[in-house]
Nucleic acid binder design. Sequence first.
RNA 1: GGUCUCGUAGUAUAACGGUUAGUACAUCGGGUUUUCAUCCCGACAACGCGGGUUCGACUCCCGCCGAGAUCACCA
Length: 479
Amino acid sequence: MDIVTRFAPSPTGYIHIGNVRSAIYPYLLARQSNGKMILRIEDTDRARYVEGATELIEDTLKWLGLDWDEGPIVGGPHAPYFQSERKEIYHEWARKLINSGRAYADPTPPEQIEEYRKKCNEEKIPFLYRNFRPENPPEWQPGIPLRFKAEPKEYSWHDEVMGDMHTGPEVLDDIILIKKDGYPTYNFAHIVDDAEMGVTHVMRGVEYLSSTPNYLALYEALGLSRPKLVSLPHILAPQGNKKLGKRDGAKSVTEYRDDGVLPEAMLNYLACLGWNDGTEQEIYTKEELISHFSLNRIQNSGARYDETKLLWVNGQWLRRIFDEQGARALYERTDGFWPETAANYDDEYRIKVLSIIYDRLKTLSDLSSMTSYFFSEPTTDIDMLVNNKFVKKLSESELEDLLKKTIAKLTSLQNWDANSLQDALNELLTETGKKPAELFSVIRIAISFAPFSPALNLTMEVLGREKTLARLNSTARTI
RNA sequence: GGUCUCGUAGUAUAACGGUUAGUACAUCGGGUUUUCAUCCCGACAACGCGGGUUCGACUCCCGCCGAGAUCACCA
């Protein structure tokens, strides 16, 4: 049997890190078996519908590299993939249930239902709608909700993550199938769609675990075989024990993209939050995730979201891309992250800058603040120089002397390359008798006026003879 | 309240009857000719509690405690 999975979000806003995992796992499972991944938009709640949310969802999935075989944009044999366009299909299935006596139109006004509920609460008995079924339900017609007629019985099933499950009859109730506006509820629509689309593995958050018996009853009444059920534990907010949601400030996935997180890192981190392959590997490519993934190693308790670790994974990926695919490959990811003044320089120069700074980056957005002095003249800040903890030890005349000697040495330097520069620096060290910390700090700050920078010789090499000397001279004059 | 789920260091996890309870992030300390970072080395730090079963339990069973989910014409 070929595996068919789906990601079925509601277009109610952006996808945040608390809920992408229910797209990642189905994707991995489908890809590792040459199966299919379906994207289905569950937009039956017109009140919560948000304009543009579908595009946001598609955008997020594409960025993460999670492509789908059927769904919006790509189409497929089970189109349409928007539930709002599948009304007729749900109604057809609903009529089957009516005909078999397993669904009834319910004209009971909401206030009445509320009263039943209140009464049960007061009497401290569980509220089950099936105890309040209307006596002579009318024929089903637009404007009247359609309810399932539940049969109280026990259910047992296997959840691929949670294990063997069992519930008593008290959890089965007459759930709404079709709302009065004619649209189906999630409870009904997803069952019909999954069946029509041939979904073999239903993967979703654990919050659906409690309603599973009702779904099982529906499969039964519709004569459908059960798909494999996979409950995914929640991702927890950094504080507290609640699942991570927008209220906890859960950022959208694409916000991380804009903050300079690589999709590889995001996918890697999220996939490994609540899943591991049993080895001690931390960094996985998408291909590795696909081949190593397995349902039975999904954790069955919630996992806390830890942005620090995400950033660490991102750092690993930044270096990995540079080291394995080359400077150019990493450079191609840096669009939009450079300081504005970098626009005046060519790719070649920017690649050089990237090559000496990349291992200091946590995210690509660090690029902007960490490289500005390569693209524009830094503001001369003598205080920064003299207050430096190493430079502080030098007298004013020593400082002046060091700068002069450095300028003289570098001016006479024949080849302006990293090795020659390092040799020159070493010579200066022995000639002046200063400690590296003292001499190098002076030079480093004089040419960058930045809190930190790459190795001195590399910085000077990239900056070039002209600029390096100009900055040294300018600093020397200002003292 | 009913039903269901979960419980190893601060965090994510490994170990599935026998280990000094492993790894990673974080934290702290040290090393690599400046800084920041990388990289390397080291330290701190955990089986929720109580009963069983067993020669032996983080691992199996029971109870308790703690945490969460769900009880919508939302998904």
